[in-house]
């Protein structure tokens, strides 16, 4: 078996889609061919990276109940003769809703209790901060500054970014600067400030040089727009020279509120 033939079967081998005899042929080729072996290794890494890193969100626990309710409603409509007294009788779905109301009250009370409990400083904050701080700088960022004094962070970063760059600080009441880092996003170098904004929530404020070309999205929107991504909410805006971004596990409206309190906005 030559390399071309082996590579044709590599993916199928990786996905466990080949019959055993073909597998064996490719495996024995791989053992003697470092180039094909490297190819396979890279493809395995791509697959395991996607499997390990892709978010796996779960639907709300209510989804199936909603589906069942709709099914019941449709079945009820199909069964019910049009008009008449029958429609005044409570349907199974309506009865379920009657039972559902106390359940909703319970869930709401529980949520309020959780929110109230959240006012107490969370023991996980430190952990969150560490994780948040480490996520970008893990590989390439040479600096991870565990300082909490804004002036110190600004002083530190002055050495790393053009001196004329404004260093934005989060002006939101209750936001506490808990760290900062110099990070690389793609090839661009940026600054990140990590804030705790109450309830154990962490947001990051990024600043990075704006690319020379124009913003590709929605040119009529002006310098500011909201970007929605899965998981953490993201707010990105720019001015003539810099791009700013707020990233945090906060609802978009909270991020907007934070952004509007930023200096220079």
């Amino acid at each position: 078996m030559d390399c071309e033939e082996a590579r044709f079967g590599l993916y199928a081998l990786l996905d466990d889609e080949l019959e055993v005899s073909k597998n064996l042929e490719i495996l024995s080729h791989l053992e003697g061919c470092p180039t094909c072996h490297r190819e396979l290794e890279l493809d395995m890494r791509v697959k395991s990276l996607v499997q390990a890193q892709l978010a796996a969100p779960a639907p709300s626990p209510e989804l199936w109940n909603r589906i069942v309710r709709r099914i019941d409603q449709e079945a009820e409509v199909a069964r019910r003769p049009s008009g008449g007294v029958a429609k005044w009788w409570p349907t199974a779905a309506a009865l379920r809703m009657v039972w559902g109301a106390p359940a909703i009250v319970l869930v709401l009370s529980f949520s309020l209790w959780i929110l109230h409990a959240g006012q107490v400083p969370s023991p996980f904050v430190e952990e969150l901060v560490q994780e948040h701080r480490g996520s970008v700088t893990r590989k390439r960022g040479p600096v991870d500054l565990p300082a909490t004094d804004p002036a110190e962070i600004v002083r530190h970063f002055r050495a790393e970014v053009p001196p004329s760059s404004p260093v934005p600080l989060l002006a939101q009441e209750g936001a506490r600067l808990v760290g900062g880092s110099l990070c690389h996003v793609g090839e661009a170098k940026g600054l990140r400030f990590t804030y705790e904004v109450g309830l154990g929530r962490i947001v990051s404020l990024f600043q990075m040089p704006r690319p020379t070309r124009a913003l590709p999205f929605w040119p009529r929107l002006g310098p500011r727009y909201i970007a929605q991504s899965q998981g953490p909410g993201v707010l990105v805006w720019g001015d003539a020279r810099f791009l700013y971004g707020l990233v945090g596990e906060l609802p978009q409206e909270d991020l907007q509120r934070l952004a509007s309190r930023m200096k220079g906005i």
């Binding site: 892709l54 978010a55 996520s135 996003v185 661009a188 690319p211 999205f217 990105v236 791009l243 990233v247």
Partner: peptide
């Protein structure tokens, strides 16, 4: 003026989006 962004195709690798992709998970995404 401000809307929800559903970016498409190659635009996704523009710097703004890279900015969003702060964690490895997000970069894979």
């Amino acid at each position: 003026e401000i809307g929800t962004l559903k970016a498409e195709g190659s635009h996704l690798l523009d710097p703004e989006t890279q900015l969003m992709a702060e964690s490895l998970g997000q970069q894979v995404q």
